[in-house]
Computed example of a mutant assay.
Amino acid sequence: MALGLPPLNFKPHCSSTSTFSSSSTNYRPAVILPGLGNNTGDHKKLEFTLQEYGVPTVVAKVSRIDWLRNAAGLVDPNYWKGTLQPRPVLDWYLKRVDDAVQEAEELAQGGKLSVIGHSAGGWLARVYMEEFGLSHISLLLTLGTPHLPPPKGLPGVIDQTRGLLYYVQQHCKKAVYTPELKYVCIAGRYLQGARFVNDSKVAVESMATIDDDQQVSDVAVVKNKTDSTPVSTTFQARFVGQGYKQP
């Protein structure tokens, strides 16, 4: 399962709520999906910011203790084989997503919705769209979501999702950017791990690749250009382990 990341804080750049209430612009409702270990309250600031801009917002109702339900996967042999599937282990989360989507659909009054997935909530949104349909969704925005599974055959690399991301890659629709549906991915910082008992240096670099035969109407790529400079390995990097990077 993807690591739970701290909720992202967005500061509204607006003078007052009344500025937007007087506007004739109608924004499509947004549904926020919490990441692993996060709860509904962690995303209150984001919800408030969107509402300040006039975007009706619904956050899926998830508590921290709810995530203990995932322990049911431990009794599934596929967990230990690394071939775990989202259902039925994550049915409880998909139900919370569906409840939030239905609430947002009432606000949309027949219009489209935006889905915002934080961390694991991003790829779980893709599972939801595959299982429940996506005709009512026009935007999937993911924040710090690992969309690709870890590479196989590398020593020290462990699939924390126990096969879930491999399932998403094989069975869920690829990213698109069309008038009907847009995928927008926002990534943040990452920590590249290192061997725990080795004095190796960690090279910090950025790399993004696009390898998809699916037609894409428009793509925007933003790259943070930095010099690849070896730095001393920290205990935190060793604790994380021999990590990998995901675009």
Rank of each mutant, 00 (worst) to 15 (best):
M1L: 08
L3K: 09
L5D: 05
F10R: 04
P12K: 13
S16Q: 09
T19G: 01
S22G: 02
S24T: 13
T25M: 04
N26P: 00
Y27M: 08
A30T: 10
V31G: 02
I32A: 02
L33R: 01
L36Q: 12
G37M: 09
T40R: 14
H43R: 04
H43G: 00
F48A: 13
F48C: 02
Y53K: 07
V55S: 11
V55Q: 10
V55Y: 11
P56K: 09
V58H: 06
V58K: 12
A60C: 13
V62K: 04
D66S: 14
L68Q: 03
N70T: 14
A71P: 01
G73W: 10
D76F: 02
D76Y: 03
Y79V: 12
G82M: 10
G82A: 07
T83S: 13
L84H: 08
Q85C: 03
P88F: 07
P88V: 01
L94E: 06
R96S: 07
V97N: 01
V97Y: 10
D98H: 15
D99I: 12
A100I: 09
A100C: 06
Q102L: 14
E103V: 04
E103L: 07
E106F: 03
L113F: 05
I116P: 02
G121F: 07
G121S: 08
W123H: 12
A125D: 03
M129K: 03
E130G: 00
E130Q: 13
F132D: 03
S135N: 10
I137M: 06
S138E: 14
L141Q: 08
L143T: 02
G144R: 07
K152R: 12
K152F: 04
G153M: 07
G156R: 07
V157H: 04
I158P: 00
I158D: 04
D159Q: 10
R162S: 14
R162P: 00
G163Q: 04
L165Q: 12
Y166H: 09
Y167N: 02
V168S: 06
Q169W: 01
Q170K: 14
Q170Y: 02
C172D: 06
A175K: 08
Y177N: 14
T178N: 11
T178G: 05
I186N: 01
A187H: 14
G188H: 09
L191K: 09
L191I: 15
G193N: 10
A203F: 15
A203L: 15
V204A: 05
E205H: 14
T209C: 12
T209F: 13
T209M: 11
I210M: 07
D211I: 11
D213P: 01
D213N: 12
Q214P: 00
D218N: 11
D218I: 04
D218V: 08
V219Q: 10
A220F: 13
A220V: 15
V221S: 02
V222A: 08
V222S: 07
K225C: 13
P230I: 05
P230N: 05
S232F: 12
S232W: 12
T234H: 09
Q236V: 13
R238L: 09
V240F: 09
G241P: 02
Y244P: 00
K245A: 06
P247W: 11
